[in-house]
Computed example of a mutant assay.
Amino acid sequence: MSAADLLIASGVALLAGVINSIAGGGSLILFPTLVALGLGTVPANVTNSIAQWPGYIGGVVGFRQEYGGQRSRLIRFSVVAVLGGTVGSVLLLTTPSAAFDTVVPVLVLVASLLLAVQPLVTKRLKKAEEGEHTRDPVWLYVALFLATVYGGYFGGALGVILVGVLGLGLGKLKLANAVKSVISLVTATVTLVIFGFFADVSWAYVAVCAPASLLGGFLGAKVATRIPTTPLRVLIVVFGISVAVFLYFQV
């Protein structure tokens, strides 16, 4: 890789961090960029996962006031996230790369469509709020496990899935958004450890993309209230669908 490649990757990671803070979906631009720069789809996926890990810390810190009285729930959900993230990560590393090449266009397309319907899900969940549930239903743990398996395997638009599942299970959208940040961080940490030891990670890209992603997340949070999210969301979705089509014909 050249210095120009590293510069391009860090610039896109910065933009991805900004996008994650404003609308979500940063992975949909950083992952294909790493592929375009010469990484295989699996190395690009694991490198992307590790590079964006610092951004999840900011999300948890930002919601710290919402975690009062949620310690027991967060521990239970975190255990599920560790198990799901582990299964997804191991699945990625133990199945043939050709299998991931086959399924990745579908995953990118699904992630893009989920990002497109996120406002509808959020609106529906706001209308359905009926007060905080005292007990978490069993189906919620099953759904969280499956979601974090997906997060360990690919992870694009994982936050959208988690908000939808948690919103229905907890009955409070604001709480769901806060808990989502913790589950995302735990899942990302699992992938960081597993991929860091066992995957073909491009550490040079991680070195420039991780701090750029963190900075982008910070800057995005500062300007989130000033930038209209709808046009940005449309742009990301269109780009994601285009990437899915491109990958479909390339792999």
Rank of each mutant, 00 (worst) to 15 (best):
M1L: 13
A3P: 03
A3K: 04
A4S: 13
I8P: 01
L15S: 13
V18P: 10
I19F: 10
N20I: 02
N20V: 03
N20D: 03
S21W: 12
I22D: 07
A23M: 06
G25V: 12
G26F: 09
S27E: 07
L28V: 05
I29E: 07
F31H: 06
T33I: 09
L34M: 11
L34W: 02
V35D: 14
V35L: 12
G40T: 07
T41Y: 14
P43N: 03
P43Q: 03
V46Y: 08
N48L: 07
S49N: 14
S49M: 12
A51D: 02
W53A: 05
G55V: 06
G58I: 07
V60N: 04
Q65E: 14
Y67I: 01
G68Y: 11
G68P: 07
R71H: 12
R71Q: 14
R73C: 08
L74H: 01
L74Y: 08
L74K: 09
I75K: 05
F77W: 01
V79L: 13
V80D: 07
G84L: 06
G85V: 08
T86K: 01
V87K: 07
S89Y: 00
V90E: 11
L93V: 02
T94L: 15
P96T: 10
S97P: 00
A98Y: 11
A98M: 13
F100P: 05
D101H: 12
D101R: 13
V103P: 00
V104A: 15
V106N: 02
L107E: 09
L109Y: 00
L109N: 04
A111T: 00
A111C: 02
S112W: 01
L114V: 03
L114S: 02
V117G: 03
Q118E: 12
L125H: 08
A128T: 00
A128H: 08
E132D: 14
T134H: 14
P137M: 01
V138E: 12
L140P: 04
L144F: 04
T148W: 05
V149K: 02
V149I: 08
Y150R: 00
G152K: 04
A157C: 11
L162D: 02
V165W: 09
V165D: 05
V165H: 01
L166P: 02
G167W: 08
G169M: 03
L170S: 10
G171M: 04
K172L: 11
L173M: 09
K174T: 06
A176I: 01
A178Y: 06
K180H: 08
K180V: 01
L185V: 01
A188Q: 03
T191A: 15
L192A: 03
G196N: 00
G196I: 01
G196C: 06
F197Y: 05
A199H: 02
D200A: 13
D200K: 11
W203M: 03
A204G: 14
V206F: 10
V206Q: 11
V206W: 06
L214C: 00
G220I: 06
V223D: 10
A224S: 15
A224D: 09
A224C: 10
R226D: 13
I227Q: 05
P228C: 06
T230V: 15
R233D: 05
V234Q: 07
L235A: 15
I241S: 07
I241W: 06
A244E: 08
V245E: 10
F246R: 13
L247Q: 15
L247S: 10
Y248W: 15
Y248K: 12
V251N: 15
V251R: 15
